[in-house]
């Protein structure tokens, strides 16, 4: 156990002649003086300024009641007999808690369900117009899903005018179709299929088309089938 110390305010001279002020915790003024000399300083004044903080803290701790520490850490272990609970009591607590929990579950869930149902009915009454609009909107969105691809796809006129603009003069359109999935298929008659590929490759509308078949006609031209359908 450390002896109680006092804080001293000490003025001391260094070997160079400069003055130094230090706070030293020591048991007495003589001990503080010894520590200054040991540090190579020449004590000038030593003045007690009160017990150190460490001493105050240890005093404070000592003065506090130690009941709790003694009971749980320092005291004797708690004896089993002191906390023994009658099994009958335990059983009753168990049964009653189970009964209480199940009752609370039943009453709570049903009352919440009834309140939630009432809220739903209230929304159906108050927001009847919005709910009707919602169903109309739903039908409209279903329609949009079908109509938007058709309405935004290039029209027949656009496809034909574009083909007329890019096809070489000796190439003719034999057949064209767009299926329900939006895939465009074109059949061309040309004397030279190789001249078609670069023409289509440079047009944004037909760039994705690829040749899926070729056949020679009776007139000696080639019949090419092109499509942009996904494989």
């Amino acid at each position: 156990m450390t002896p109680p110390t006092t804080r001293f305010r000490c003025e001391a001279a260094r070997p160079s002649g400069a003055t130094d002020v230090r706070l030293i915790d020591a048991a007495s003024a003589a001990a503080a003086r010894d520590r200054l000399i040991a540090a190579g300083l020449e004590p000038l004044t030593i003045e007690a300024v009160g017990p150190s903080l460490l001493t105050r803290l240890s005093e404070l701790l000592k003065s506090r009641p130690r009941r709790r520490l003694e009971k749980h850490v320092l005291g004797e272990p708690i004896r089993a007999a002191a906390v023994r609970v009658p099994p009958r009591f335990l059983a009753s607590v168990l049964v009653l808690s189970l009964a209480g929990t199940s009752c609370a579950l039943m009453v709570g869930s049903w009352s919440l369900a009834l309140v939630t149902g009432w809220k739903a009915e209230r929304i159906m009454r108050r927001e009847a117009a919005s709910l009707v609009h919602y169903h109309e909107r739903l039908a409209k969105e279903r329609l949009r899903r079908v109509a938007a691809p058709v309405m935004t796809a290039p029209a027949i006129t656009e496809v034909m005018e574009r083909l007329a603009g890019i096809l070489p003069p000796d190439t003719g359109l034999a057949d064209a179709k767009r299926d329900a999935a939006g895939a465009l298929t074109i059949v061309l008659e040309t004397p030279d299929p190789d001249q078609i590929r670069p023409v289509f490759a440079h047009d944004p509308l037909f760039r994705s088309m690829r040749s899926i078949g070729q056949a020679r006609t009776e007139q000696g031209t080639m019949r090419i089938t092109l499509t942009d359908a996904r494989r």
Partner: peptide
């Protein structure tokens, strides 16, 4: 009561 509570929770889920 446990059974009734179970059905109550189911009903509550549906209502929610």
């Amino acid at each position: 009561t446990l059974t009734a509570g179970w059905f109550g929770v189911e009903r509550l889920n549906r209502e929610r």
